[in-house]
């Protein structure tokens, strides 16, 4: 009866390789996604994921190599370029920030697609794989890259947890404490770029966005504290990665797509039936409602 759960593992190494890589991708994306989401930068993540493509392709064209450091460097560079470009454009009075995002990443992505389709046809870059991922065929390089990037992301987030949490919640106050808010911002952006590159082979440039945004959005509706939100987001990522892999195997479809759809369904379930903020079973308690009479706490203040 459980054979459909167990069998895929016996069909060859690709199953555990695939499972390992999507889990690593899901964990790194979920953790970074929480901070991006809370900083209202979900769509910057969208942009960064897209611009990693021209970064990788350009790095390949210039160096002729597809080694991990070259790819990471290329993507980090275009990521930084896009971040700076978006911020510079947003500062001009006749461009709104959302339009700035849209302009920068679509243009850079288009350039990447064109380079990919004209210049690197016979290299070992598979267009379809870069865009939509190929979990079951991930290379050793990609697994090693993930095995390096995901722990790195976790360690960095743990080390800079106070800076990240304080500057995400209240950047003005964080600055007054002497926290280097701008450095934290660019550090986070770089981490997102690196994670995107590491995730490319497994889930592709476009669907990685879902693994960044959806877990955080789900977790936000379930948790009142940041570390719980991180835990819920990671759980969401891992569960949808696992379930999505099985679904992809059963119906013979894109694994990345199946993972994203599973994650989306979990989000929809939490949105509708979540214990506290769900639309359907919400017991009438919403944000912003005062709790109890103001007077009681004032009494405590004076007493």
């Amino acid at each position: 009866m459980l054979s459909w759960l167990v069998d895929p593992w016996t069909w060859g190494a690709w199953m555990w390789r695939g499972m390992l890589s999507v889990t690593l991708v899901a964990v790194a994306c979920a953790v970074l996604g929480v901070f991006l989401y809370l900083r209202r930068m979900s769509l910057v993540a969208d942009a960064l994921a897209h611009v990693a493509l021209p970064g990788i392709v350009a790095a390949f064209l210039i160096s002729g190599s597809l080694s991990a450091p070259v790819m990471l460097f290329g993507a980090a560079l275009t990521g930084l370029l896009a971040t700076v470009g978006i911020e510079t454009l947003s500062r001009r009075p006749n461009i709104r920030p959302d339009a700035a995002i849209g302009i920068v990443f679509t243009a850079m992505f288009a350039a990447g697609v064109i380079l990919l389709s004209t210049r690197v046809q016979d290299a070992h870059i598979d267009t379809h794989c870069l865009l939509f991922g190929d979990v079951l065929g991930v290379s050793d390089r990609s697994i090693w890259l993930l095995a390096f990037v995901t722990p790195l992301v976790l360690v960095l987030v743990a080390v800079f947890y106070r800076w990240l949490s304080a500057s995400s919640f209240d950047p003005g106050f964080a600055k007054s404490l002497g926290i280097p808010v701008a450095a934290v911002h660019y550090g986070l952006m770089t981490a997102v770029s690196l994670t995107t590159v590491a995730s490319f082979e497994a889930v592709g440039a476009i669907l990685v966005i879902a693994l960044i945004i959806v877990p955080a959005a789900t977790a936000h509706r379930l948790s009142d504290r940041l570390h719980l939100m991180l835990a819920f987001a990671v759980a969401h990522g891992v569960v949808s990665a696992t379930v999505g892999m099985y679904v992809a195997i059963w119906i013979d479809s894109s694994a990345a797509g199946a993972i994203v759809v599973t994650g989306g369904l979990i989000y929809a379930a939490v949105f509708l039936f979540g214990p506290r903020h769900g639309l359907v079973f919400s017991p009438g308690r919403h944000c912003g409602q005062g709790l109890g009479p103001e007077a009681s706490s004032i009494n405590a203040l004076e007493g």
């Binding site: 979900s42 959005a217 989306g264």
Partner: peptide, 13 residues
């Protein structure tokens, strides 16, 4: 971002 990526993911599936 959610609608974009989940719809697109479904499309890719």
């Amino acid at each position: 971002g959610i609608v974009l990526s989940v719809f697109f993911g479904f499309g890719i599936v």
